[in-house]
């Protein structure tokens, strides 16, 4: 039994990292929003990495899953607020977010997962943009008008609760998504899914010839990653900000942020997204404060330098360094 559990020991540093982050947030309430923003980047990176890191497939339209997740929560609060469900609305919202993102990921998976490389990346961009224009063009869920549901949330649960939900519980949910994503990543890594996907990442055709049901495992990882994104959207964008506009949530920029985070930390590693998110989030915040208006100009060249000089990411390098030491068991 002990031995069985030992293979999951790399989760310890991850839990430690999230615990420390959460602890800092609780100890310094005035920094909570910053911690929440960092947690959002962690969760985004962790969820994105689950599929991209293991398979090497770059889902450029990943943000679409966050988008439909946001709508899941929004629809629940906006349309059901007067049904006397109270806090139950939030659970319905999370459930809807999961359903919507599963649905979309099945549809995308059926089409795009047959493609590889750049074709896959472009197809997923197409899905994201297409979906956004469908929402706007067919006036689904108010179309481009979006939904503003601060009032609805307040009516449903009361002013105080609504405020705590938006400024605290939404962020704790984000932590939850991040931890869940990390745990699932590790479980997949240590099981058949992970082995199959590693084989796939190295050489998809060879993996197929070996008799591995590549498609099945790809879809499992894809849907898991999508649902996590949906939950993240529901908490970080809908519950926290209490409004949704399609142009704001189906914005490719967030996929790029996810890619940057994963790359900074090291694609396919467990700890990487956390390290990447902390570096990315903290430096972004820092630049916004000291050089307002210039952060992108400074950030973009730095990113190029990092990809060129450290393509394996921070944790990738670290892994190499500690090979053969006792730490090896904990850092993957």
């Amino acid at each position: 039994m002990m031995r069985h559990l030992q293979k999951y020991s790399p989760i310890l540093p991850v839990l430690l990292a999230y615990g420390v982050l959460l602890g800092i947030g609780l100890a310094y309430p005035g920094k909570w929003q910053l911690i929440a923003q960092l947690a959002f980047y962690c969760a985004l990176g962790q969820a994105f990495n689950l599929f991209m890191g293991m398979t090497g497939y770059v889902d450029f339209g990943y943000v679409a899953f966050l988008g439909v997740g946001t709508y899941g929560m929004a629809v629940s609060i906006y349309f059901l607020y007067d049904k006397g469900l109270g806090i139950g609305l939030i659970f319905i919202g999370l459930a809807l977010a999961a359903v919507f993102s599963t649905g979309l990921s099945l549809a995308v998976g059926a089409v795009a997962l047959r493609l590889r490389g750049a074709y896959f990346a472009i197809a997923t961009i197409g899905v994201n943009e297409g979906f956004r224009y469908f929402v706007e063009g067919a006036r689904i869920w108010n179309g481009a008008d979006g939904m503003i549901f601060s009032r609805h949330l307040r009516k449903a649960v009361g002013r105080e609760t609504a405020m705590t939900l938006s400024t605290q519980w939404a962020d704790i949910l984000v932590f939850g998504v991040a931890v869940l994503a990390a745990i699932l990543t590790l479980v997949y890594m240590r099981n058949k899914v992970g082995y199959a996907l590693t084989a796939l990442r190295e050489d998809e055709d060879a993996a197929k010839v070996m008799g591995i049901n590549v498609t099945k495992f790809k879809i499992i990882a894809f849907i898991t990653s999508a649902v996590l994104a949906g939950l993240l959207g529901a908490s970080a964008w809908a519950l926290k900000l209490t409004y949704v506009y399609p142009e704001d949530v189906f914005e490719i920029h967030y996929t790029v942020e996810a890619i940057i985070i994963v790359l900074l930390g090291g694609a396919g590693t467990l700890l990487g997204p956390i390290v990447g998110a902390l570096i990315y989030g903290a430096s972004k915040y820092f630049l916004a404060i000291v050089l307002p208006g210039f952060q992108l100009l400074i950030f973009a060249p730095i990113i190029i330098v990092i990809i060129v000089l450290f393509p394996e990411g921070t944790v990738g390098i670290l892994k190499k360094k500690i090979r053969g030491t006792a730490l090896e068991k904990f850092i993957i």
Partner: peptide, 17 residues
Amino acid sequence: YYDCESRKESVTSLLER
């Protein structure tokens, strides 16, 4: 003033700061 880059998630943390 700080720069939120026209991004919703930066508004909350900068405002709180």
